[in-house]
Amino acid sequence: MPELTGRTVLLAGATSASGRAAARTLLARGARVVATGRSAEKLEPLAALGAETEVLDPTDEQAVRALVRRLHERGLTVDGLLHLVGGWRGGGGLAGQTEEDYRALEASFTALRHLSRALDDDLRASPAGRLAIVSSTAVARPLAGGANYAAVKAAGEAWTRAVAQGWAKAAREAGEPLRAAAVVLRVKALAGLEDRLAEDFAQLWAADPAELNDSILTIQEKGTD
């Protein structure tokens, strides 16, 4: 596991079990962790672990940009973003995919767009910028009962790959080595794999960014790789 002392990592949507696992792993490796969530109360366990916490509605673009400004005012620039904003709604076949369900799920994609744009300069300038989203194996094999969910996850993957292409192009045109990498982490179901997700995310800093950028990695139980 790489040493992350000196790195600042932002966990978006950190109040889940996955967020707590990621915070523990990153803090243990020396990273400075900024954990965000909509509820101050639900952020308390992250603060107890040693993370800095920020109440944030990631679907509010101005709120996201204000957070980044506050970090900069404190002398912090972000080296890593783990996007954990998500949720599940589905079932009932195609006819059961309601517009209300879609709009609720779409918030994850909206948050990703806001966060990645607001942090683009930080991640590009970092000596080792990393952006990762948690996606789903449903993108490769969508089912009618999860059409809304798979569509939103597919949009998130497309956006992340576009970020990766932009970073690679900018490095090429500047005649500089690529230092940042944007990655898709796919999982069938996160329950029971929270620690593995955290380990795999931290491990991104050990990989060559030129090989890592624009990759899709599947998170599995240890021993099933």
Score class of each variant (00 low, 15 high):
R65W: 07
H72N: 07
P45E: 08
L105V: 03
A138K: 09
R69G: 04
L81E: 11
G129S: 05
A48Y: 02
R141G: 03
V55R: 14
Q97H: 05
D122N: 10
H72G: 14
V134Q: 01
E61A: 15
V85G: 05
T137Q: 09
R141E: 13
H83I: 06
R32C: 08
L76E: 07
A147S: 15
E54L: 07
L143Y: 12
Y149F: 14
A47R: 15
R124E: 12
G145F: 10
S39P: 01
H83C: 08
G129I: 02
G96V: 12
A151H: 13
G90I: 11
A132T: 07
D122G: 09
S135R: 06
S108N: 06
R89S: 11
G80E: 12
V34N: 00
Q97I: 13
L84Q: 14
T77M: 02
P127M: 08
D101S: 11
G75K: 10
E100M: 02
N148Q: 11
S39D: 12
V34H: 05
A118H: 03
Y149D: 00
R69D: 15
L71T: 05
A107Y: 04
T77V: 14
A125Q: 13
R89I: 04
V68R: 14
D120H: 13
S116K: 04
G146R: 10
R141P: 01
S39I: 03
R117M: 10
D60P: 05
E73Q: 14
G146W: 02
R141A: 15
